[in-house]
């Protein structure tokens, strides 16, 4: 008798807990306003990442195609993964003196772990985070980027007045 009673009591409690769960899911089924899913590839036009979003490392260029990087190599030293290579060149300035300047700032996105040490350590604030996050490519070599744009020059320091 006791086991029969327990059998039916189990069924009742099982149905009751099932209904409790179904009430939760049913509540959201009937209130489509609470849908949180973002339709990603369709919402590309309106998708805006946060200001601090770590997409990739970029070098800031102003409207005259000038950047701040003087090729000191501190970012290369601070990078834990060897994702940055600085290639410098020597050029004669107006007075004929040989001055070291940046030729290529090579950035291997495939090795980058987004630890932010290069950006934090840069003494001339040449680097910052870019917002682009769609990094999928078919060829690995496309992940190696040159950060300074072709033909760009270093920003001259303004004389302190």
């Amino acid at each position: 008798m006791n086991s029969v009673f327990k059998y039916f009591a189990d069924i009742v409690s099982g149905v009751r807990s099932l209904c409790a769960g179904m009430r939760v899911t049913g509540k959201y089924f009937l209130s489509p306003g609470e849908i949180v899913t973002e339709q990603y590839p369709e919402n590309r036009a309106t998708l805006k990442m946060e200001d601090r979003f770590k997409g990739e490392v970029i070098m800031t260029h102003d409207e005259n195609n000038q950047h701040n990087c003087n090729g000191c190599g501190i970012c290369e030293l601070n990078c834990p993964n060897g994702a940055i290579e600085i290639i410098t060149k020597k050029e004669a300035d107006e007075t004929g003196k040989l001055v070291r300047s940046i030729d290529k700032h090579v950035y291997h996105l495939s090795m980058c772990t987004f630890c932010e040490l290069c950006i934090k350590s840069c003494p001339s604030n040449a680097l910052e985070w870019g917002q682009n996050f769609e990094h999928a490519v078919f060829d690995r070599s496309k992940l190696t980027k040159v950060l300074n744009q072709p033909g760009s020059t270093i920003k001259k320091k303004e004389a302190k007045s």
Partner: peptide, 12 residues
């Protein structure tokens, strides 16, 4: 997390 650190999971 994303708003403050820029990354969601591995925020150094």
């Amino acid at each position: 997390f994303e708003e403050s650190f820029g990354s969601r999971l591995l925020h150094s």
